[in-house]
Computed example of a mutant assay.
Amino acid sequence: MPDQTIPATPPPSEPLSEAVPARKYVENKPPRGLYVRVFIYVIATHVLLAMMSLVVIAANSR
């Protein structure tokens, strides 16, 4: 095998003049975690209200 003294791909002598502009990211729907958190907050609120109602009923019955 001959000794290779030049690189296989020479480095570009000038940078690319027309670089493709980066696409702007537009989020058109909320992340899935938001729905999970809202669901947990709603369930927790209902459970808390139910427990408070049971405490009030138990306090009134004594």
Rank of each mutant, 00 (worst) to 15 (best):
P12R: 14
P30Y: 02
L54K: 04
V47R: 01
M51L: 14
H46F: 14
A8H: 11
P31K: 08
V36Y: 04
T9H: 15
M52D: 08
P11T: 07
M52I: 11
T45W: 02
T45S: 15
V20C: 02
P31L: 13
L34K: 11
V26H: 03
R37F: 12
Y35H: 11
V38G: 00
A19F: 06
R23H: 09
N28H: 12
P31H: 10
N28Q: 12
V42Y: 06
I40S: 05
P15T: 06
E18G: 11
V38R: 08
P7V: 11
S13E: 15
I40G: 05
V38N: 10
P30D: 09
A22V: 05
A22H: 04
A19M: 12
R23Y: 08
S53G: 14
A50P: 00
N28V: 10
G33P: 00
S13L: 15
Y35W: 14
V26E: 07
V42N: 03
V26P: 00
S17D: 12
G33Y: 07
L49V: 12
V26W: 00
P30T: 04
V38F: 06
F39I: 06
P21L: 01
A8G: 07
K24E: 07
R32H: 07
P15L: 07
A19W: 04
Y25W: 02
L49D: 00
S17F: 05
R37C: 06
S53K: 07
A19P: 06
S17Q: 14
R23Q: 13
H46Y: 09
R23F: 01
Y41N: 11
Y35F: 13
P10T: 14
I40N: 08
L16C: 12
P11V: 01
R37A: 15
N28W: 01
V38P: 00
R32E: 13
P15I: 05
M51W: 10
P11Y: 07
Y35M: 05
R32K: 08
G33H: 03
P30R: 05
P21I: 00
P10Y: 12
P15H: 04
Y41L: 10
S13F: 04
M52F: 04
G33K: 02
A50R: 00
